Amino acid sequence: MSTTWFITGTSSGFGRLLTERLLARGDRVAATARRPEVLDDLRAQYGERLWSARLDVTDTEQIHQVVADAFKALGTIDAVVNNAGYGVFASVEEATDEQIRRVVDTNLLGSIHVIRAALPHLRAQGHGRIVQVSTAGGQTAYPNFSYYHASKWGIEGFCETVAREIAPFGIGLTIVEPGATPTGFAGALDTAPVMPEYVNTPAGEVRRAIASGDFPLPNDPHRIAQAMIDLVDSADAPLRLPLGSDTFEDVRASLVARLAEHDAHRDIALGVAHRDAE
């Protein structure tokens, strides 16, 4: 039995890989991109099983219209994949106001509005799964990615709440967290002029590692795309799915460190309670 998907950001990276794999196995895909003409080769090969539309996820009105059009054209959509993303690679002082707004508008608000636009349709049909593409940086942090992290930590918190709210309607939600992967995303990161004050800091160290090619990209993008497909096929999908050895280890180390720090301040935390609550 085929599955019908709605995917944002399908011009490249995971969005393109997902679209190719799903069409090849016989599924239907509503593929959106800012330049949908890049999907013309797939449309020529797969015909009506590929529905496409122009979508800029920073345009809320356009999101609602495109989502409604996709459900009307395809009838049922089983999985909604929030994949469109934008990254800023700069220290906290180097990024411009415009870059900050764009990363929040794309990764956080764009994802929120896609979910809000899809939910009435998913509730009406009584089933579906939302797949939110996040990153290891949705639970841990690296220098030069502060605004990217702000958007990803934000969308993960939003999705964790939404998952509880929509479960009674038969709708699931999974946050997938790919690690560093050669999809071309790193090369597409927006940058800003480097401030000399940050050259000999952790931000400068990460910048030099990426520029020299020493920053590892250990994961297979095709295997990550397949893991996303498999989780939608599964009847027991988790809330979060780490994808990559770097994601697993970095997030685990971050959680362990946060828990140790949390526990270290137990006495202070409990000491501020009202005396009659003790």
Rank of each mutant, 00 (worst) to 15 (best):
E61C: 00
I63C: 02
A70Q: 09
F71C: 02
A73F: 15
D78P: 10
A79I: 14
A79L: 06
V80I: 03
N82C: 04
N83S: 15
A84Q: 06
G85S: 09
G85F: 05
V92N: 07
E94L: 10
D97I: 13
E98F: 12
E98A: 15
E98W: 10
Q99K: 12
R101T: 08
R102F: 09
R102Q: 14
V103D: 07
V104R: 11
D105P: 02
T106P: 07
I115M: 14
I115S: 08
R116T: 01
A117I: 03
H127T: 12
G128Q: 03
I130G: 03
Q132I: 00
Q132F: 05
Q132N: 14
V133I: 06
V133S: 03
S134Q: 06
S134F: 00
A136T: 09
G137E: 09
T140M: 13
P143M: 09
N144Y: 05
F145W: 11
S146R: 03
Y147W: 15
A150I: 05
S151Q: 11
W153T: 11
G157E: 00
G157R: 08
F158W: 09
E160M: 11
R164E: 15
E165V: 05
A167M: 13
A167H: 13
P168H: 08
I175D: 04
E177W: 07
E177R: 10
P178H: 11
T181K: 04
T181W: 00
P182G: 00
G187Q: 13
V194S: 13
